[in-house]
C-alpha cells in the first residue's frame, strides 16, 4: 500500500508535483498515466525516498521509505533502465544488492532464472540490450520478494516480446496480492495492464478511477451510416429519438442506436444503405481530451513551415 498526502515537489518556481493525494492498493495494478513531464517519475522517486518532497508526505506500508527496516523486502522498483554500472556483471550487480538487505545468494540465482538471464548472468551489463537491461532491473526489483512494486515506464523501448513479457509479469504480481504501481504515458498500455487508473497532468491528479469505469465512460461509440436517400433516412432516425450528426464526407452519425436498429429502420422504409459501421472512440482520444490542458509541450503542427527553409 502506498499513500500520498498533499505530496508536493517544487524546483525553484516550477511545481512538478502539486499537493497530490492518492492511494495505491494491494492486489491490483494501479496505472499512473500522464504525458511526459507530468510528474510521474518525480512522484515515484519521492515514494522511494530518493527525492525529498517540498511538502506533504508519502508512505509505503504506513512508513516513510527511509524508515523501512529492510526496504528491499518490502518494495521493489524499476525506476530507470540504466541504474546499473555497466562494468559489473549481472550476477554481481544482484549480489551486492542482495547483501545490503541480507538476502541469500541462492535468491540471486532464482531471480536470474525468473527473468531468463541465466546465459548472460556472468557477462558485464554494459553490453546488454535495452530489453536485457530491463530484465536485470526487474530481477533487482523482485530480489527481496517485496509486496510493493513500482515500475516506471517499464515497456519503453522494448520489443513486442519484451512488452508482452512485462505485461504478463505485472498482471501476475498483482494477482498474487501485491501492490503494483506502473507508470506510462500510453493509454493503450494502461488499458491492457491496469485495474485502476491515476491520471496526472501538470503535477495534479486529474482522474482517479476504476479502469473498467473509465473505459465504459470514454469508449462511447457511434454508428456511421451512408445512404443515397440520407434526408429521408435522417428524418426516420430522428423520429426514433436518436441523436444525429453529419460527418465531413456527408455520412450521418447516429448516437444511441445499434447498427441492427438502424438497419431495421432503413429496411422497413425500403431505403438503400451504402455504409453502416460502428465507430468507437479510442481510449487514447479520451486520454488526450482529459490531459489536453495539462500537456507541458505541445507540438505546434498547425504552424505552416516557412518556404525556403
Amino acid at each position: 500500500m502506498i499513500t500520498a498526502e498533499r505530496l508536493t515537489k517544487r524546483y525553484g518556481d516550477t511545481t512538478a508535483v502539486d499537493a497530490i493525494d492518492f492511494t495505491v492498493r494491494p492486489g491490483s495494478v494501479t496505472g499512473f498515466l500522464g504525458p511526459n513531464g507530468a510528474g510521474k517519475s518525480t512522484t515515484m522517486r519521492m515514494v522511494m525516498g530518493l527525492d525529498h518532497p517540498s511538502g506533504g508526505r508519502v508512505t509505503v506500508n504506513g512508513r516513510a521509505y527511509r524508515d523501512l527496516p529492510a526496504p528491499l523486502h518490502e518494495v521493489g522498483a524499476l525506476l530507470e533502465a540504466k541504474a546499473i554500472h555497466g562494468g559489473r556483471t549481472a550476477y554481481n550487480h544482484l549480489l551486492w544488492l542482495a547483501k545490503t538487505n541480507g538476502i541469500p545468494r541462492r535468491r540471486v540465482n532464482e531471480v536470474i532464472g525468473m527473468v531468463g538471464l541465466e546465459a548472460v548472468a556472468h557477462k558485464r551489463s554494459g553490453g546488454f540490450s535495452l530489453g536485457m537491461g530491463q530484465r536485470l532491473g526487474i530481477a533487482a526489483a523482485l530480489l527481496g520478494d517485496p509486496g510493493v512494486l513500482l515500475f516506471d515506464e517499464p515497456v519503453n523501448g522494448l520489443d513486442p516480446e519484451g512488452i508482452r513479457w512485462i505485461r504478463t509479469l505485472i498482471r501476475s504480481l498483482a494477482a498474487e496480492g501485491r501492490t503494483v504501481f506502473v507508470s506510462s504515458h500510453l493509454m493503450s498500455e494502461m488499458a491492457l495492464t491496469a485495474d485502476h487508473l491515476l491520471v496526472i497532468g501538470r503535477g495534479q491528479i486529474i482522474a482517479d478511477t476504476d479502469m473498467a469505469d473509465f473505459i465504459a465512460r470514454n469508449s462511447a461509440a457511434h454508428v456511421r451510416v451512408r445512404s443515397p436517400q440520407s434526408g429521408v433516412l435522417a428524418e426516420a432516425l430522428r423520429d426514433r429519438g436518436w441523436r444525429l450528426g453529419r460527418a465531413d464526407d456527408g455520412a450521418l452519425t447516429v448516437e444511441g442506436a445499434t447498427p441492427e436498429q438502424i438497419g431495421d429502420v432503413a429496411g422497413s422504409r425500403g431505403l438503400y444503405l451504402h455504409e453502416l459501421s460502428v465507430v468507437s472512440a479510442s481510449l487514447e482520444d479520451a486520454f488526450m481530451r482529459l490531459t489536453a490542458d495539462s500537456v507541458e509541450y505541445h507540438a505546434r503542427t498547425e504552424q505552416p513551415i516557412p518556404a525556403g527553409v
Binding site: R66, L79, E80, A83, I84, H85
Partner: peptide, 13 residues
Amino acid sequence: SGMIRTTLAAAPR
C-alpha cells in the same frame, strides 16, 4: 551510471 538510485533504494540511510 544512475546506480546511486539503486543503492539508495536498497539502503536509504
